[in-house]
């Protein structure tokens, strides 16, 4: 993987990161000169009002998007200088992503959905099947492995999505509004799952509106108008 190693102690290091884009001719500054660090083992909640840049920052930290300016190191690697295919491979191996709308493949079973990133990474069929079973058991879905997304509840779908995100043992789990489509009780269960994973050593960053979820994180970072509010 290309990039320059910078800091050994920080899992993520963002330096003066800015993300601008044009919308109908107007220049939008979604993220403005943000610098931050996430240490291994952190559970960080990124909060802020709608349009404050939470999702954009999360995408930048996960190498899903590239900043207009600034540098991001993830696992000691500069992800901002990578090509598209390099970043895709990097995400596959180093980043786990959970989305508000789950984005599971409806025609695959829970196990197959979890296996998908491992298949892409070239893990053997037997190993990825064992790993998928292990992960689904870990997120409490031992009895839903052969179910398709349409046959399970929203909370269970999000658990499958979490299991999928953990499939390739990522350094960082990023979740963008993971409770956005869930009711309060299920959101609470999701928080417990994140806390449990964090206690097991998984580094997590969550962009959320959900105050309960944010309160359950070890660290919080508030964004307003694309800037960190101290």
């Amino acid at each position: 993987m290309t990039g320059t190693a910078r800091r050994e102690d920080a899992l993520v290091e963002a330096r003066e990161v800015t993300r601008e884009y044009r919308l109908k001719g107007d220049l939008i500054q979604a993220v403005r000169g943000i610098s931050l660090e996430i240490q291994a083992g952190d559970f960080l909640a990124i909060v802020g009002p709608s349009g404050s840049g939470k999702s954009t920052l999360l995408h930048l930290l996960g190498a899903v998007d590239t900043p207009t300016d600034g540098t991001i190191y993830l696992d000691g690697t500069d992800v901002t200088s990578m090509s598209d295919p390099q970043r895709a491979r990097f995400r596959l191996e180093h980043v786990g992503l959970v989305f508000q709308r789950f984005h599971l493949l409806p025609m695959l079973t829970a196990t197959e959905n979890v296996e998908l990133p491992m298949a892409e990474a070239g893990v053997s069929r037997r190993d990825r099947r064992n790993r998928a079973v292990e992960l689904l058991e870990r997120v409490g879905l031992a009895n839903r492995m052969r179910h398709r997304p349409g046959e399970i509840s929203g909370g269970q779908r999000q658990r499958v999505a979490v299991a999928r995100a953990l499939a390739n043992r990522p350094s960082l789990l990023l979740a963008d509004e993971p409770t956005g489509e869930l009711d309060q009780a299920t959101s609470g269960e999701m928080l417990e799952l994140f806390q449990s994973l964090n206690e097991d050593g998984t580094s997590i960053a969550v962009a959320t509106h959900d105050l309960t979820l944010a309160a359950g994180a070890r660290k919080r970072l508030t964004l307003v108008d694309g800037r960190i509010r101290e």
Partner: peptide, 16 residues
């Protein structure tokens, strides 16, 4: 489109 973007986000290659 959304699912395709998600698959790309989790690292599934364009080629795949």
């Amino acid at each position: 489109y959304g699912t395709i973007a998600a698959l790309r986000a989790i690292g599934i290659s364009r080629r795949s």
